[in-house]
């Protein structure tokens, strides 16, 4: 299992989702990614994208205009 940190600060939706999607393509089932963002829209978009594509958000935090989510990769295509 590997873990990756992804910096998506200053990107506006849906760019953080696109970056996450591209990152997940390089990972395997069970791996995790923590993505750090400044656009509050990610708190809605990343969980929605994860649900649709079979991944799980295992943690999400919000502090001082910084939004951080950790996603565990589900079944890969």
């Amino acid at each position: 299992m590997s873990h990756v940190d992804l910096d998506a600060r200053r990107l506006l939706c849906p760019m953080p989702v696109i970056r996450l999607q591209d990152q997940i393509k390089t990972l395997h089932t069970g791996d995790t990614v923590t993505v750090t963002c400044t656009d509050p829209g990610v708190m809605n978009d990343i969980p929605a994208w994860s649900r649709i594509n079979g991944h799980s958000v295992i943690n999400s935090e919000e502090e001082e205009y910084l939004y951080q989510l950790t996603i565990q990769v589900g079944a890969t295509p």
């Binding site: 939706c13 849906p14 809605n44 978009d45 929605a48 994208w49 649709i52």
Partner: peptide
């Protein structure tokens, strides 16, 4: 709502 309509 800050939803992305395509995702929704």
């Amino acid at each position: 709502p800050k939803r992305n309509n395509a995702l929704w």
